[in-house]
């Protein structure tokens, strides 16, 4: 079974500056990591490979520094890594991103399963997975918490707000996974070193892909960022209980009990 996992490098620090003109996150130089949900997608692909055989390819679109995340994916155990990187891709929204990913995945050839994380921690849209399925005309199963492949049929449990549902689809399929599906493995030092020294990362630019130039980057995006800002924390009134500590604590407890917040 050939599995493709879409991953994204996201900022891991608490503070990421925003370009107030374009609304884009200024990621360069910020500490970064593989998006957490995508780590679970990688792990699930590796588990499926261990069970059913085949290969796992990790693919990402991003600046050159996104190669770091692909090296980490190689250290986790994926067989192949592909970086889609070009200045022309910069500023793409989710539709632009899924369009480029779809073209690159077609170029990779036949595949059975595409796994994505449910959503990313920076954009938070949860749109790329479903949009990619549409671009590739694939059945999609979102919010997957359990998955197996039996005789070419994907059987998956989808997380719902009040439970889960079991769905089936014929391969090829795109699935987005939630974090409860597994616990991602941590690469060892030796695996990281091998990934950096021996692992191969294929880099494709816009010139390597047969793609409609009008759909690239900021200009080709369907959505436009009109304003970006960091919200100011709201000031809350607060209340200070004065007096001796014992009295102040007693007064606080009395008030909480009076409001039936504690009992």
């Amino acid at each position: 079974m050939k599995i493709i996992v879409c991953i994204k490098q996201v900022p891991s620090g608490a503070k990421v500056p925003i370009d107030t003109r374009t609304g884009a996150l200024l990621r360069e130089g910020c500490p970064s990591d593989i998006n957490e949900d995508d780590k679970h997608a990688l792990e699930e692909a590796l588990l499926l490979r261990a069970k059913d055989g085949g290969s796992v390819t990790a693919i990402t679109m991003g600046p050159p520094q996104a190669e770091e995340s692909l090296r980490e994916a190689l250290a986790m155990g994926v067989d192949e890594a592909v970086l889609l990187s070009d200045r022309a891709f910069a500023g793409a929204d989710t539709s632009g991103t899924s369009c480029i990913l779809a073209v690159a995945i077609r170029k990779l050839g036949d595949f059975d399963l595409i796994l994505c994380g449910k959503q990313t921690s920076d954009g938070d849209t949860a749109q790329v997975g479903p949009q990619l399925a549409e671009e590739l005309q694939l059945p999609q199963i979102t919010f997957v918490r359990k998955i197996q492949v039996v005789n070419g049929i994907v059987q998956a449990e989808r997380s719902l707000e009040d439970g889960y549902e079991v769905v089936e689809a014929e391969l090829p399929v795109l699935a987005t996974v939630v974090r409860e599906i597994n616990t991602p493995r941590k690469p060892t030092i030796g695996a990281l070193i091998d990934a950096c020294r021996k692992g191969k990362v294929i880099v494709w630019t816009a010139a390597d892909l047969e793609i409609d130039r009008n759909r690239l980057g900021l200009e080709g995006s369907l959505t436009k960022m009109t304003r970006a800002f960091v919200p100011q924390p709201k000031k809350r009134a607060g209340k200070i209980y004065k007096g001796l500590p014992h009295d102040a604590v007693r007064n606080l407890l009395d008030e909480l009990e009076g409001k039936h917040l504690i009992g």
Binding site: D33, E67, E68, R71, P187, I193
Partner: peptide, 16 residues
């Protein structure tokens, strides 16, 4: 630092 050095630094940081 090279990519390898940065990744090792990050991995050790996570462990610590």
């Amino acid at each position: 630092l090279t990519m390898e050095e940065k990744l090792i630094q990050k991995m050790a940081h996570e462990f610590a």
